[in-house]
Amino acid sequence: MKLREIKEILNAECLTDDDCLDHEVDFAFGSDLMSDVLAFVDENTLLLTGLVNPQVIRTAEMMDINQIVFVRGKRPSDSTIRLAKANGIALLTTKEILFMACGKLYEKGLRGVPIV
């Protein structure tokens, strides 16, 4: 699913450059626990989270996660957004809660990261 479509489904705002909306994602993972992101996520995944600290960006960088949706209307600081841009990570923010955001994307065909 293209990030552009995800932005529309979640009525989200893009916090990074619009050209990143052409990113294509295969799976999604919703979590506020970065420890679990580091343990379970596979490549080319969309991360949905309510955490907005710089470690979310660092975690994404390490995992080759190139797109993050912040839920519950959360918005990271300018320095965190700069860190994401420097690493080519697209950031969206939506007013939806995590449950609803995941539900809406699932309804449109996006599936969760397979857990072995």
Partner: peptide, 16 residues
Amino acid sequence: REMGFGAGMGLPNIRR
């Protein structure tokens, strides 16, 4: 924990 860590997955994940 507020930063999203402390799930007790770190060392097992490093070993994995």
